[in-house]
């Protein structure tokens, strides 16, 4: 009997070992590329070209960081890491804020008011979920050009807001808020504005935070639209500038791996940090918004 017990406990242990092995392998699959990039930001370009990524950490991190932040590639000398970082921040924050404000307003109107054309408005808004920007990219560019929005922050942010993801999300959420709340508020004499500002918004705090994280990451990571709309180097975001960074690697001079990889790292860090720090909100928002 003791034998039997022993063998069972051993079998369970092996199962655990297998679980952990698979998970560690998966984690390494995810992590190793980042470590390679990280290592090359700490060595000189010559060392990288000669030996490739090594196991040892070099001492060139700060010189590379300086180069990445303050040196510009291209003709105008305006697309330094600093300027691209600022533009990325403006895009990420502006997009998230715009999307949430506009989405909440529209969702509030759709859920809490009796509107004659509510169904029409609903369909007009939710059809936008069906067609991603990528399939209508060229006509969108033409429209933005006609409106004189090339190389402006408005042109960068507003067309990206033209889809109903946040509206849909908040509509779902508002509909799950107990109805008694509105009735109570009305009996107490609260008007629609007061109800929205004093009750609904504070109640949706977690949802707003979750949506903000998702939208910030989404906006920060935009590539195709910024590539088309910004031609001036001073307007580049980090993600949009990545193409120029790769072209630098093809140049006739010594490829600047240290600077390029550092810029890639700077492009990765803010959204990843946000996702890791606010993990539970982010997961909640993601799994509840898309269903």
């Amino acid at each position: 009997m003791t034998d039997n017990k022993k063998s069972r406990s051993r079998r369970i242990k092996w199962g655990r070992v297998l679980d952990h092995t698979v998970l560690i392998a998966g984690s390494l699959f995810m992590l190793i590329p980042l470590l390679v990039v990280l290592q090359t930001t700490t060595t000189t370009d010559v060392a990288t070209i000669k030996f490739g990524p090594q196991l040892a950490v070099g001492d060139q991190f700060f010189p590379n960081l300086m180069k990445a932040m303050f040196k510009a590639s291209g003709f105008s000398g305006q697309n330094t890491g600093t300027s691209m970082l600022i533009n990325s921040m403006i895009l990420g924050l502006g997009f998230a804020l715009g999307k949430i404000v506009i989405g909440m307003m529209a969702a509030y109107a759709l859920v809490y008011f009796r509107l004659r054309f509510a169904t029409l408005a609903f369909w007009l808004i939710f059809t936008t979920l069906l067609l991603p920007l990528e399939v209508r990219i060229l006509p969108s560019y033409e429209v933005a050009q006609k409106l004189g929005l090339l190389n402006t922050y408005t042109g960068l942010i507003v067309p990206l807001i033209a889809s109903a993801t946040a509206t849909f999300f908040f509509r779902q959420y508002f509909r799950s808020v107990p109805e008694e709340l509105v009735e109570a508020a009305r009996i107490d004499g609260a008007g629609p504005v007061k109800f929205f500002v004093d009750i609904l918004v504070p109640l949706s705090r977690t949802m707003i935070a979750a949506m903000f994280i998702i939208m910030f990451v989404y906006g920060w990571n935009q590539y195709l639209w910024p590539t088309m709309i910004t031609t001036e180097e001073g307007m580049y975001t980090l993600v949009r500038g990545i193409k120029q960074i790769t072209q630098d690697l093809e140049g006739t001079n010594i490829p600047e791996y240290g600077r390029a990889n550092m810029l890639a790292l700077i492009a990765i860090l803010p959204p990843v940090a946000v996702v890791i720090f606010f993990q539970s909100w982010f997961v909640k928002g993601l799994t509840e918004s898309d269903k």
């Binding site: 995810m30 935009q222 590539y223 990545i242 193409k243 890639a264 990765i268 990843v272 946000v274 996702v275």
Partner: peptide
Amino acid sequence: WVYAVAPPV
């Protein structure tokens, strides 16, 4: 965490 990495990056 890779969720937050942009496709071109």
